[in-house]
C-alpha cells in the first residue's frame, strides 16, 4: 500500500511553515478578491470559446434547407416593414440616404445588439445543466455568444454591402468614402462590448430573479424605438424627446455607423466616448457580478 492514512483525530495538521513554502496550482476557497476578473483563465480556454462559436453556428444551420440564408431573411423582412411604416405611412425623411439602405444599416446593428444581449442574458439559466457538472470559466459562454453573433452580423453586413453596391453602380447615391470608414469596426466593437456587459449583468440577476428575463424581452422590443433605427437622430432636432435618444448609448453608435458608410449621421467624439464609457462601466460591473454569481449560483438557480 503506497499510503496509509492516519485516522483523523482532531490533531494539528501539518505545521504551517511547511505548507507555506509549497507551491499550489490552484486553491479552491470561499471567496476571491472582488477585483480579480479572472480574464487570464478565460484566455486559457480560448479554444473552447471558438468551439462554442462553431457549435452555435453549425447547430443552427443543420437540417435547414436554406441554412445561413435564414440570417438574411429577418433583416430583409424588417426593412420592408420599415419601408411601409416609417417611409410610407409616417413619411419620415432619411437624410437623403435611400431608405432601404438606411433602414438596413440600423437594423443590422440593432439585431446584433438585441440577439447578443438576450442570448448572453440567459447564460446561467440555459446552461445550468452543464455548469452543474463541469468547471470552466463561465465567462467563456457569453463571450462565445457575442462572437458567434458577429458571424451573423457579417452575413447581414454582406447584404448591406450588396445593396450599397447597387445604389452606387446605378448612380442613385454617391458615396464619399474616407477615413471615417474605419469607424465602422470600432462601432461594432463597442456594441459587442455593450451587449456582453449588459447581458452578463442581467444573467447574474436572473439566477435569483427570473423577472429580468421577461423584462428584457420587453425592453429589447421598446429599445428599438428609442434608438435611431427607423429614423435619423437629426429628425428630433428641437424635440423634447431627443433627450431619450441621447441617454441611449446605442444612438451614437448607429449614427456613427451610418456616417462612416453613407456620410450622413449626427454624432460627436463626445457622444461616442459616452458610449465607450458606458460599455467599459457595464463590462466592469458585469464581470464582477458574474464572477460573484458563478461561484455559488448552482445553489440558488
Amino acid at each position: 500500500m503506497s499510503t496509509l492514512y492516519k485516522e483523523l483525530e482532531r490533531e494539528q495538521p501539518m505545521t504551517e511553515t511547511n505548507t507555506d513554502k509549497e507551491h499550489w496550482d490552484m486553491i479552491i476557497q470561499p471567496k476571491t478578491s472582488m477585483l480579480d476578473l479572472q480574464l487570464k483563465e478565460v484566455w486559457r480556454y480560448r479554444d473552447l470559446i471558438m468551439l462554442f462559436v462553431k457549435r452555435d453556428f453549425a447547430a443552427q444551420v443543420k437540417q435547414t434547407v436554406l441554412g445561413p440564408v435564414w440570417h438574411l431573411i429577418q433583416p430583409i423582412l424588417t426593412t420592408i416593414i420599415f419601408l411601409v411604416l416609417f417611409g410610407g405611412i409616417a413619411g419620415i425623411q432619411t437624410e437623403g440616404v435611400p431608405q432601404p439602405m438606411f433602414y438596413m444599416a440600423g437594423i443590422t446593428l440593432w439585431y446584433y445588439f438585441s440577439l447578443s444581449l438576450t442570448a448572453t442574458a440567459g447564460t446561467f439559466v440555459t446552461n445550468a445543466p452543464i455548469f452543474g457538472k463541469v468547471y470552466f470559466p463561465r465567462l467563456v459562454l457569453p463571450v462565445s455568444i457575442v462572437i458567434s453573433n458577429l458571424i451573423k452580423l457579417a452575413i447581414q453586413f454582406g447584404l448591406l454591402v450588396v445593396i450599397m453596391f447597387y445604389y452606387g453602380i446605378s448612380g442613385k447615391y454617391v458615396f464619399h468614402f474616407n477615413i471615417y470608414l474605419l469607424l465602422a469596426p470600432v462601432v461594432i466593437f463597442i456594441l459587442a462590448g455593450l451587449s456582453l456587459g449588459l447581458g452578463i449583468i442581467i444573467s447574474s440577476l436572473t439566477t435569483k430573479y427570473r423577472d429580468f428575463t421577461l423584462l428584457l424581452t420587453f425592453a429589447v422590443q421598446l429599445g428599438m424605438y428609442v434608438s435611431p433605427i427607423g429614423y435619423p437622430l437629426s429628425k428630433l432636432e428641437g424635440s423634447k424627446y431627443r433627450i431619450l435618444l441621447e441617454i441611449n448609448p446605442i444612438t451614437p453608435l448607429v449614427e456613427a455607423f451610418r456616417y462612416s458608410l453613407f456620410g450622413k449621421g449626427t454624432f460627436t467624439t463626445g457622444t461616442l466616448l459616452y458610449s465607450f464609457a458606458f460599455m467599459m462601466v457595464s463590462l466592469f460591473f458585469g464581470i464582477i457580478m458574474f464572477n460573484k454569481v458563478e461561484k455559488s449560483f448552482m445553489d440558488t438557480v
Binding site: 499550489w24 496550482d25 486553491i27 479552491i28 463541469v134 468547471y135 461561484k295 455559488s296 448552482m298 445553489d299
Partner: peptide, 14 residues
Amino acid sequence: SRTTAPTIGNIKIK
C-alpha cells in the same frame, strides 16, 4: 470540481 464554492476552508491542488 469547482461547480460550487465552499463556505469555509479551502482545497489546495497541484
